[in-house]
């Protein structure tokens, strides 16, 4: 906190007011409504509303569909995180070597960040569209009965690839920044201590990079939870047969198409709890980073 400040009470209140008003109206009020409505059941016509305590949650945890969504989200998160983090780390390590054109490579690898998830979905859908996709044809040529529109596993692979593709650039930039912040003298010291390039990577560089990697892991999970909504909606609509229905997508589906507002809000509340937990973990990590 700074020592020197201006005098006055009204002015700062006026300055902070717009943000507080918008935050209360569009964050706190809806969030509290979500909590409140998760305890209510509305009939199909919205004419009567009943307070049912935790019934929505009980129903939810008996619903195989919800466990399916959790499973889908878990598989989706892990696959995307592993794939995009791994590729990004490999590329960042290569780009960190003192080679010609490093700047060019960086530029060419960073732009997918700017592509909307939904658009990334369309790009990959087009390549793997069973009848006209260029790569789908290649797969079929190999005798694989590729059809993400009908085969749940194929659909999952498709959205994983699209989501990972979009996230590579983000992870790449952070890994590269992390690598470049490692003092060169440390690597030279390791070399003098007799460590070869591979050994240097695993004993010096990777441990120093682990805070970045952990941070990225959390960010990637949050990304898969929420930002991939556009990919799912554009590519599979959660199908086929809910094979790609993530938890967020189910909130959307149940609330809008199913009309089950209570259930949808109960799911929202659970998601909120999850996000808060993830954020708390991240803060713990940031705190730790400060001590370094």
């Amino acid at each position: 906190m700074r020592k020197v400040v201006f005098k006055g009470t009204l002015l700062p209140l006026l300055l902070i007011a717009p943000q507080i008003v918008i935050t209360v109206v569009f964050f706190y009020w809806p969030a509290s409504q979500a909590v409140w409505q998760s305890f209510l059941i509305q009939d199909a016509f919205g004419t009567t509303t009943e307070f049912v305590w935790l019934e929505n949650y009980q129903v939810l945890f008996k619903d195989p569909g919800y466990y399916n969504a959790m499973g889908v989200t878990a598989v989706f998160s892990i696959a995307v995180a592993v794939l995009s983090l791994g590729l990004a780390l490999l590329l960042a390590v290569m780009a960190d070597k003192q080679i010609k054109g490093a700047g060019f490579y960086k530029t060419m690898l960073m732009w997918p960040y700017a592509v909307a998830p939904a658009i990334a979905g369309v790009l990959w859908l087009f390549m793997f569209q069973p009848s006209l996709g260029v790569l789908a044809q290649v797969l079929r040529g190999w005798g694989l009965d590729w059809n993400p529109l009908l085969n749940g596993r194929h659909a999952m692979i498709l959205v994983i690839m699209a989501a990972a593709w979009k996230q590579i650039s983000y992870n790449f930039l952070f890994f590269l920044a992390g690598l470049q912040s490692i003092p060169k003298s440390l690597i030279e010291a390791a070399a003098i201590d007799g460590a070869g390039p591979r050994r240097r990577f695993w004993t010096v560089i990777f441990p120093l990079l682990s805070p970045t990697a952990f941070f990225l892991l959390v960010v990637n999970i949050v990304y898969v939870f929420f930002d991939t909504f556009g990919i799912i909606d554009a590519v599979t609509h959660g199908g086929p047969a809910k094979a790609t229905e993530t938890m967020v997508y189910k909130v959307f589906q149940d609330g809008r198409l199913g009309g089950d507002l209570g259930g949808s809000n109960a799911q929202s509340v659970i998601l909120m709890a999850l996000v808060i937990a993830l954020t708390a973990i991240q803060f713990k990590y940031i705190e730790r980073r400060v001590h370094y």
Partner: peptide, 30 residues
């Protein structure tokens, strides 16, 4: 928040801060 001291300053700050944890996706319908 930074250049003034006023009543409930930290309360307001935390009010804003907590919204870090509430993306649109978790409160769609409300």
């Amino acid at each position: 928040v930074v250049f003034f001291r006023f009543p409930f300053r930290m309360f307001f700050f935390w009010t804003i801060f907590v919204t870090l944890m509430l993306p649109v996706e978790v409160r769609i319908y409300p």
